[in-house]
């Protein structure tokens, strides 16, 4: 991509009210969307609000919707976008807008507080430490890669379109529950909450969360569906319960 210019159609406004405005700015090899937004902020719109921090895809701050898809702006290369037409940049739809590209994601932190925390079994050794096998912890390690960018929450249609914020915790926190539930040391039982308060049954397996995860976590197949299966074990499989097949 040689040095040229591109138009960015950025949502400007406060608390849900606003409009898209076009900004034309020079772009060059290696630029990402966040670079272009910063350039626009420096040259043309000093009051443009954008949340960012690491510029390396690890802090999860610069989540937004680029050409309609939830993405980290710092990880979205301009060379991957069609620059012959305006690049649309807007805030995450699932959370209340604060200003311009910044949204209020505090709901997520309140949800996290409602999930039963890690409760390890009694220590394995007299010095108060535990012993774990690597193969037992591998599944959980995938979930620990989450950077809490909340792109999965943004794209999930249960929250995005149906606004079930008070009945469904969303993919990010189902991953969190999976990390706790599948942990070899954990002894807490979260299955009743999964079925009722956490609303795992609302997920209808669109796999959109997996598609947008910048860390490549296989959210649906490795976290949500195994949790659904654990709910089935408890509530919808009388034969398995009766025979005691497949105990943990």
């Amino acid at each position: 991509m040689s040095s040229t210019s591109a138009t960015f159609r950025i949502w400007r406004g406060e608390k849900g009210k606003g409009e898209f405005r076009d900004y034309k700015t020079p772009v060059s090899e290696g630029m990402v969307v966040l670079d272009a937004v910063h350039q626009i902020q420096a040259d043309q719109a000093n009051d443009l609000a954008v949340r960012w921090n690491c510029k390396a895809g690890k802090c999860g701050s610069c989540s937004a919707e680029v050409n309609g898809m939830p993405k980290l702006m710092c990880m979205t290369r301009l060379s991957d976008l069609p620059l012959d037409q305006p690049v649309t940049v807007q805030p995450m739809h699932t959370f209340p807008s604060i200003r311009d590209l910044v949204t209020d994601v505090s709901w997520n932190f309140r949800v996290k507080q409602e999930i039963k925390p890690f409760k390890p079994r009694q220590p394995d050794a007299p010095d108060g430490t535990w012993r774990m096998q690597q193969e037992d912890i591998e599944r959980v390690q995938e979930f620990r890669k989450c950077i809490e960018c909340f792109l999965c929450q943004d794209v999930c249609h249960v929250l995005r379109d149906h606004h079930k914020h008070d009945e469904f915790i969303g993919p990010r926190f189902l991953v969190h529950v999976a990390a706790l539930e599948m942990h070899p040391l954990d002894t807490e039982d979260r299955i009743p909450e999964l079925k009722k308060a956490h609303g795992v049954g609302y997920c209808n397996i669109t796999k959109c969360c997996t598609k947008v995860c910048p860390e490549g976590i296989t959210i649906t197949d490795n976290a949500i569906i195994p949790l659904k299966e654990r709910v089935v074990d408890r509530y919808y499989d009388p034969i398995k319960r009766l025979l005691g097949i497949g105990r943990k």
């Binding site: 849900g16 050409n67 309609g68 209340p96 709901w107 949800v111 995005r160 914020h165």
Partner: peptide, 19 residues
């Protein structure tokens, strides 16, 4: 269960900024 304080906008059928 946590709730969202501000009412969110509903998107019309088929509406998207995806290209």
């Amino acid at each position: 269960m946590a709730t969202v304080d501000v009412p969110l906008e509903r998107v019309r059928f088929g509406r998207t900024a995806r290209k």
